[in-house]
Computed example of a mutant assay.
Amino acid sequence: MKVLLAGASGALGRSATRQLTAAGHEVAGLGRGATNTLRADLLDADAVLRAVDGLAFDVVVHAATALKGETMARHQSMVPTNALRTRGTENLLDAARATGARRFVVESMMFGYGYGDHGTGLITEENTPFGPRGTNTWLERHVGAMRAKEQLAFTAEGLEAISLRFGFFYGAEVTDNDVVPLLRKRSLPVVADRGLAFSWVDIDDAARAVVLATEGGTPGQAYNIADRTPLSFGRHLQEVAAAFGAPKPLRVPLWLLRPAPLAHTAMTSQLRLDASKAERELGWSPTHDDSLAGVRALASAHRAAV
């Protein structure tokens, strides 16, 4: 198939491009970066349509974000990604229709279920509403953008839409390039986990879910994509530090994160995803049951390569 991938230069996009190509598909990246096949700002509707003019695609994948390390800290840092999830989705849907695409795959994430402590039970696509409306203005903007991205795709006439709701990413594209350097500088602190846990997913496993969603799955459905063992943020980082020989992350009291309100909110949240629907319907499964095993395997491969 011919696949138009918005966000091809990002961590997920790079892995998805490799795996889609290996599966025999033809991929064109769309975005502002120089590595994209088609150059356009996703927020510029006219530029997007000009970029795809005269081209035909079978599937469009929306994996474009502006997420960086500091995005987890302050609400304002999420504004560009919120725009990509709303106006960017509208523009990309227009491009999908203009190019004759039949399927539209969107990247989403677990925080779309709402920030906060969801308890120790597993969140399925059916037992927990996605995109709940909140009273906190900033959190509503973030969650609302994820809600809008899915709704725009699911209600788009003439397109089969699938949403992938990912846990926290780790893996070669993330751990090696972003997390380990910060740990070596001791600039990535953790707080006491208080029994709270998140779901995690290896970036290459996440990309494999993108490939499977372009090829199958039920239109109009969302799928949780995460490994089988939720883990606290601190425990995950401790394992990364140990596996890669970095100093232990600094442990700080939660109140020190108040100047970084989004990080404070995230660190007091708990979201444990159940990905069994993706295993049944997409044929997807995680390479490792938990991120601890995944990080150890990643570090072992890194040492072997060196």
Rank of each mutant, 00 (worst) to 15 (best):
L152S: 11
T175C: 08
T65S: 14
R102N: 01
M1L: 04
F166R: 00
A156P: 05
V60D: 01
E107P: 07
W138V: 03
A275G: 13
G171C: 09
T37N: 10
G10P: 00
H236Y: 15
R32M: 14
L292K: 10
F244V: 10
D176M: 10
Q238C: 10
V79A: 14
P259T: 01
D289E: 15
G167T: 09
Q19C: 06
P219C: 03
A64R: 04
G234E: 03
E26T: 13
Q151P: 00
A207L: 08
L122T: 11
G220L: 00
A73R: 15
V143E: 01
E215C: 02
A23K: 09
A209S: 07
L262E: 13
R50Y: 09
V105M: 07
D227K: 04
A83I: 07
I225Q: 12
I203Q: 07
V295P: 03
E173M: 09
G7Y: 10
I123Q: 09
Q238D: 15
D289S: 15
R296N: 10
V61T: 09
R133H: 13
H142A: 08
M267N: 13
H118D: 01
T214H: 00
A95K: 12
V27I: 02
A28F: 13
A47N: 04
E150P: 03
Q238V: 14
R186F: 08
T287W: 03
D44K: 06
P80S: 06
P129I: 01
T155Y: 03
